[in-house]
Design a protein around this nucleic acid. Structure first.
Lengths: 238, 238
DNA sequence: GTGGCAGTGTGATGGCCATCACAGACAGGA
DNA sequence: TCCTGTCTGTGATGGCCATCACACTGCCAC
């Protein structure tokens, strides 16, 4: 005998790698049940779009697996990537709670499974479960935090090299390091990296070549190995 | 007979110009009373600092009057201004709810009155009053929204002129316009404007001169009059 | 008044990097 | 197999703007 559809979804979410960080995991049972009832799951292929900048908010998406690119773009086609979201994150939260249009566009870059909760259901749920609202506030605070971090790399660097170095070091902060080296997998094209740090595609290519020549890092396919972290850090001061 | 100290503060806040936007104004009476009990008021002179980037969060500040500059700075002294906060806004909210260090520094640039609530009291209050937590979430969402807007002006423009034009137009969106002209008071130095848009002080000076020569705007003391809004907007497309 | 200080205006110089142009690399599909 | 499209690598060029340097203004305090 199968569990009802909603419950099954929550269970699948409990198996997420980031479970303990998750937004709604340690809520009291009645809240969890209610949540299960209003949640619906879906799978999205590479290239799909969860929501578009300017759209009025339909609700939130809770990522179970995959990767989603959050970006904003200007009239002339330039675009700025703010974040690559991974499993465990909640997308569309700010727009959903404020009621203002989505401020970013969410594009799937690796096949993704996500749970959706409609705005109406979500708001009602938050009103009834104060603890959940507090969790949401915390999550929003962290999102803000990372946005500020992004602003710092873009706004406070003089050179593109500095921005790329900051970007790589930020990434390496998550992944742990083994014996002086740090390995990280970077499934982004140079174009996309450029859009993350506010530089052109060619500049990113040249900078990578430059860093390689200076023995700061090494690239094998989609893995980047930082050979000389201290050296990279010294690029920041320049 | 005077009202108890705490209540008096709340009353003084009820006279804020932005009352209806305020964070905690339409809460049920018991919540308002509790809030009054944990709030303490203070006045800060120009140049005072409410909190510093990197400090662990002491609590939130609710601005009753005055102006506060929120900025972040890098090791080499460069700094980036994210926002000038005015009456009715709540400062330190993201850090206070997440527990992470303040991500910005808050400096008073016009004499300010503010109500302070310590982190412990504030969190307890939120846990007990779910509606308030929801309000906090909404406020955080809006803060995030404006951070994204700032990112767009800094990250998506090719030229400094474009950034300044965007900055001025964003400001003019708040102030309403009379017969084609928009007046706005800008109590910032060129240096500070530069730090808001990521440009040098000299460039800001030159751009203002340029805009004046092109009849786009006019400057009288600390008021800027946008004479030709359409013209300014056309700078964005260039 | 006069000194000092914060803010503004303006020229000269040089470097960084966006842009254009094109070539090679690599994968997947017909 | 070629072919097509996406990604990466590299040179040449030019413009924007940060930086340095210095003059000038206005304002406040003494």
């Amino acid at each position: 005998m199968r569990a009802p559809y909603g419950l099954e979804i929550i269970e699948s979410c409990l198996s997420c790698p980031h479970r303990e960080d998750r937004l709604f995991c340690n809520l009291p049972p009645p809240a969890v049940q209610k949540l299960a009832a209003i949640t619906s799951a879906a799978a999205y292929p590479k290239g799909a779009t969860l929501f578009v900048e300017g759209q009025s908010p339909r609700g939130v998406f809770i990522l179970c697996s995959g990767k989603v690119k959050l970006s904003t773009s200007s009239a002339d086609g330039r675009s700025l990537i703010l974040r690559i979201s991974e499993a465990g994150e909640v997308l569309g939260l700010p727009a959903t709670v404020t009621g203002k249009p989505y401020e970013l566009t969410a594009d799937v870059i690796e096949p993704t499974q996500a749970n959706f909760i409609s705005r109406a259901d979500f708001l009602l749920f938050l009103r009834e479960h104060g603890e959940a609202a507090l969790r949401v506030a915390q999550q929003l605070g962290e999102t803000y935090h990372s946005a500020i971090a992004e602003m710092r790399t873009i706004g406070l660097s003089h050179s593109a090299g500095e921005k790329l170095a900051r970007f790589l070091l930020d990434l390496s902060a998550d992944h742990d390091e083994g014996k002086g080296e740090v390995r990280l997998t970077l499934t982004l094209t140079h174009e996309e990296i450029g859009q993350m740090i506010g530089a052109s595609r060619e500049t990113v290519t040249r900078l990578f070549a430059d860093f390689k020549k200076k023995q700061l890092l090494q690239v094998k396919g989609s893995t980047v190995i930082i050979k000389n972290k201290a050296g990279l850090e010294s690029v920041l001061g320049a």
